[in-house]
Nucleic acid binder design. Structure first.
Lengths: 351, 351
DNA sequence: ATGAAAGCGCTAACAC
DNA sequence: GTGTTAGCGCTTTCAT
């Protein structure tokens, strides 16, 4: 006998402390469970009068459906998993917010997990899938990971390059190409790029775009002098930005005339290092950044910025997933959105 | 007949496309489902030899438990709901990260939802409870909301003041008292406080602390002059900080000698307004803040800051919930943690 | 130590 | 339209 809840419920009336079940509602309304179920799911016919009675009784009994049971039976949990490397990162925090809002409107709940390493990631995804999530939005921890999920999955921001997986990314290569070109156009000849983990698709793209723009100019004499560059890969953290910048400033063989921070957090570290050394951009050095942290609004004088369309990316990813969910025959596609170049010296308004 | 999955599975072997169930594993291992279940849950005895066989077969079949079913049956979903006003807010982003990590270690998954308004909040909580979450961590949208959940719930940061609900908050009143006193001690006599929604317990505390420190000094002549103050309630956003600050600076009747921002976002708005007006703290005006955004690390010279123990709060809240979950007889308690005053002019290190 | 069986709350056939 | 029923995958007695 199972009797953990509603002990000794006698003839079956729901006991105090136990929540009313569909059966309770059906009984109280004098209908079969099928009818009661149909009333709530909307699948199948229910007479208007009966419907009202069921609804009223449910209200009185404080009935709430058990989604665990519904999910088990119907094989649709109305749960979506969101797996990302770090909730703390502003980009992902904003993404979560947007994704959550859209999914909520569509009747889904969000199971969120962060997974830093590749190993972690696999375990996390599996645990989430154990809840029979209907779909997954995933920011891969590395560009090599391969994972077969039993449900639609769309990758956000980074790509694992698994064949046939939907993804929404930003064209970082193009962005960094443009950004770098604009720096060259402004006359900068010694460029340093501080970037994150080399294993990430985004990092690879950013470096590629940077190098691409430098292209043949590298090491050769161009109008105004020879072009030199240095790339410092590390991690997408303020700490790395700080350390890398201090290293650059302390070097005796070469000094950059402009520093490119490949993420807002790196930019924060760079700003700290510059401040500590009493170096003021753009007077003493050039400063460019990928994406713009809050404080650019009042410190941004001279900071050339490439802005990825963060909001749009999250929105698109969610819409793609919802599309797959409502029509499973939809083929997964890869969407690449473009960012926008924002000239330095501007003071943007904030929200 | 129900046959949506594993169509025509004939003798019962799991068909392609359908996931292996416990029954499949049991059959393949030549044991009863009960034994197979015990192998995974650890409840009850299983012979070592049998155990190994079941485990091996499960591995081969790629078996993964269905937590929906387990939750339904055992009435413990291993799901915890996290309901907060805004994922975008740095405090809540950090909290989520900490809470997630701790819960994950304890074998729980996180159902996250943001709810801005009181109405939203009730619906959100109900939807989450429909998944039979084992517990809830909640940042109430207002200090008036009352909600009875069928599971342990601990309030974080703000309190709804519902009787008998566990909570972890910061002693903001004390913090603002100290902060304000230190400002008075430094000789400031005209203090403006820019704060958020008046309906929140935190706002009320912050204003109370501020007023408390001003106390009898208000409007009277004190060493160095009469003390005057103004409180501007609005919302905890950069936009409000910006507008409120511009309003203060534009007023003709009274000018503050120091501005206190009651949140990092408000501080960001204030910093923008000051920059736009060419006002440099602490040279031209005093600037104090609650909690410290990243950029204080390089812009924070002269910014007096009260630092709430954000990490500790999230940790404590999670531990309290886990405590309630492992021992339901634990009585809910209210924990109030103290923050720390950080003198202006310092440049803190960043992570 | 293990198998058989009941049943968690719900949905979806199916019969009427 | 509505009631009945089978069963989703699992846990948990209970008997052996």
């Amino acid at each position: 006998m199972v009797a953990r809840r509603g002990a000794d419920r006698g003839d079956g009336a729901s006991a105090a402390g136990s929540r009313a079940s569909l059966k309770d509602v059906a009984r109280a309304a004098g209908v079969g469970v099928g009818t009661a179920s149909r009333t709530f799911t909307g699948n199948g016919y229910v007479g208007e009068e009966t419907r009202q009675r069921v609804l009223r009784v449910a209200e009185e009994l404080g009935y709430r459906p058990n989604r665990l049971a519904a999910g088990l039976r119907s094989d649709t949990s109305h749960l979506v998993a969101l797996v990302l490397p770090d909730l703390t990162n502003e980009f992902y925090a904003v993404s979560s917010q947007i994704i959550h809002a859209r999914l909520r409107d569509a009747g889904y709940q969000l199971l969120v997990a962060s997974a830093g390493t590749v190993e972690d990631e696999k375990k996390t995804l599996e645990s989430l899938i154990d809840y029979r999530v209907d779909g997954i939005i995933h920011v891969p921890a590395s560009s090599g990971s391969r994972f077969r999920a039993p449900c639609p999955i769309v990758e956000l921001n980074r790509r694992s390059h698994s064949p046939g997986i939907a993804s929404v990314t930003c064209d970082d290569a193009a962005g960094f190409r443009e950004l770098t070109r604009s720096l060259l156009d402004r006359g900068y000849r010694d460029l340093a790029l501080i970037v994150g983990d080399e294993g990430l698709s985004t990092t690879q793209e950013r470096i590629a775009g940077f190098r691409d723009a430098l292209g043949a100019r590298e090491g050769t004499v161009h109008s105004g002098g020879a072009v030199h560059s240095r790339v410092l890969p590390g991690s997408y953290s303020a700490d790395w930005g700080h350390r890398a910048c201090l290293e650059l400033l302390g070097a005796t063989d070469w000094q950059p005339s402009v520093i490119v921070a490949a993420s807002p957090r790196i930019a924060t570290g760079v700003a700290l290092a510059l401040t500590q050394r009493g170096i003021v951009p753009p007077r003493d050095i050039g400063f460019a950044s990928y994406s713009s942290p809050d404080w650019f609004s009042f410190w941004g004088g001279g900071v050339q910025t490439f802005l990825p369309p963060l909001d749009q990316m999250a929105r698109r990813a969610t819409d793609m997933l919802l599309g797959q969910l409502s029509d499973p025959t939809t083929l997964p596609s890869s969407v690449v959105l473009s960012g926008e170049l924002r000239p330095g010296g501007s003071v943007r308004s904030i929200g």
